[in-house]
Design a protein around this nucleic acid. Sequence first.
DNA 1: AGCACGCCGACT
DNA 2: GTCGGCGTGCTC
Length: 815
Amino acid sequence: MQYAQIVLPLNLKGSFTYKVPEELMSDIKTGMRVLVPFGGKKIYTGIVFELHDNAPENFSAKEVISILDDQPILPEEQIDFWNWLSDYYLCKLGEIYRFAFPSSLKLESETYLKLKPNTTVDFENLDVNEMYLIQALEVRQLINLTDIEAFIPKKDIIKTINSLIDLQYIEIDEKIAEKYKAKEVAYVKINDEVLGNQNLTEILVRLNRSSKQKDLFLAILEKQTEHPEVPIRKAELFEDGYFGSSHFKGLADKGLVEEYLMQKDRIESYEGEIEELEELTEQQKEAKNEIDEAFEEGKNVLLHGVTSSGKTHIYLEKIDECIQEGKNVLFLLPEISLTKQITQRLEKKYGRQLGFYHQKLTDFERVEVWRRIKHNDIKILIGTRNAMFLPYRNLGLIVVDEEHDSAYRPREASPNFNAKDAALVLGNMYGAGVILGSATPSVESYYNARKDKIKYVFLNERFGNVNLPEYELINFKEAQESKKVSGNFSLHLIDEIKKTLDEKNQAIVLHNRRGYANVIECESCGYVNYCSNCDVVMTYHKAANEMKCHYCGQRASKPRSCPKCQSEKLNERGVGVEQIHEEVSKLFPDHVVDRMDVDSMRKKFAYEKLYEKIEDGETDIVVGTQMISKGLDFDHIELVTIPKADSLLYVQDFRAEERAYQLITQVSGRAGRVSGKGRILIQTYNPDHSVFQLIKMNNPAKIYKYILTERQKFHYPPFTKLIMIELKHRKEDKVNRASQFLGSILRKYLPEECVLGPERAPIARLNNLYQFQIMLKLPRGKKYDEFKKMVLLSLNEFDEITAYQSIKKDVLVDF
DNA sequence: AGCACGCCGACT
DNA sequence: GTCGGCGTGCTC
């Protein structure tokens, strides 16, 4: 095997061919990391994806510099998984690599500057910047490029460096820095020789003159003899303040004790009591049996369990079984803030065998988890979508909790894949069973279950036979006509909240729109504030007293008068959650009303604080956006109200109804978890709308049937496959031409009815990039693969036009 | 993605 | 006249 296909952490297609030097041939294996030169003088950490003997024809391969691992860091299963992801989602292996590995594991060379040896610098002829740089280099021999920014203005850096290189004073070098340092902790022990020497009395007599040292010596000796297997941390000796480090040093100088260092995991693990699981209810047992059967047939499972039906309970049972069989578990969650409940329960049972992996870990913490997974120290890994790429060796089970959640596919992620779907494939690679769990499964998963591609398991009762919440639709139009409203609330709804509060219970008000008002509009000329980076109006946030663009995050001050016609009559239009919160606060001045949305939860621990407040009953009403539909499992929430439910449906998206159903059902699940007397009030202008009517009936099968019929009628997923191609560029005419061109190529290879567009994106400009999109509607089944090859062909043809290379192109498969 | 090369506008 | 902008091309 003389050649290796290496994947590099760059946004480039496929892999690169390198020659394996003779001396590395016997050691190199697929899945190992290697250092390779690339381009001018850069060195990258690449991964060996394939070894072969086919010499490249069109170029001469460079040589692998060295191998970084003694065993493959990436298991075969992951290599297969990456290849699948790249094929299916039409993304680059380099993108996956960058996403999958913590940056400390894929070091690249950094450019350094150093003084040329044996040169005398003539300071007379240097400018200020040049002098600074030379002086800095005299102090520390190496300086990397980013450090220079600290003392030379950014725009002068290149000039300064070039000039000094011309003068032959400095030179450029590349260096790979080892970034990851294991955290080491100091431990102490009695010197081995001292222990061997039986004459302890003699030692103690010698210590009589320094009583503290003697006490310390005895303390260490006692710990060590009582628990010889437990290392003694140096820090713990000084914890009660009685001993100081000078006492230890005294003993060490006498050769009685010694200090040694050990690596410590950065991640703190649970060390408390370990607890057994509760027994399953009859219904849960039945569900578990069905899962077992499915797994035996080699089928994956969609676990559809209404809120508080005890899905977690079943997960725990399956997890336990899997671990008994000596296999490991991956538990996926849409976002890390939801880990609380599941973690607490798992920690009690599995303690240190539990690991976490998510976006909030530091890079070093990620590396630690990698190592622990590699060493098989972790039995259960709880994590978000990026945890799918850890180097598992023997996965036996993957759980995807809240599988419908859109966080499994963040909009602007690279590589863009759906973690829920990818989990099924990952499970297949490892021969592990996969459970997708949700109270409101995605329509696609439900359809797959219906088509028997995955097994459908339904839990339709709440734990402890508690009743499901009851829905009531309030006709807001009628209420308005009979003048029974106050602002955005019907008197009936207000009355219901009042009743709930009188019974010392809590209520939730859902309004899924951030800010105070959607638009601020000039009454006389109609002027509205546009974001300067995007083609969207800015939202008024009263709490922060500013205008915000919800797409690029830009902020601006609230205008006092119309910048166009100077009129001071500015109208606020469109209702945001802040306004609903304000109204509720005014309606219930004697109660505590809190707001929960991304804007109010931005501060550190804001979420935790509010969570505690609700738990302790200090909050009476929580007004919030969709955030409140997740993780708020409290006993005293009895009422959920949605004053402006229509806004959930007025979204331009074929998934609007599905999303509305999921959101309403999820937030409803917060009510009456214990009492079984939960009530949901949906206030709408269209109480006859099918979605509301079906929700009221509380019959999931009917809702899914309705949504599926609609999807079939309009040729949307799951009946067709969608691929969305987005093109972005700073110049509108350029991206317009490019998308017309790509559209024509696609039409050349695909039937006319499959290609929609190109057209301007609903938000024509975002972050100063103009956007055009082409939607591909492709048939399912065998034909799909064939058509997708054509798409790939078209995209490659497009890529050959060099003039369009500066255009950002995103391909979203299964949009 | 990074980096070098090369061609056009705003300044000493 | 130069500096520096960024459009283009290339990397095993």
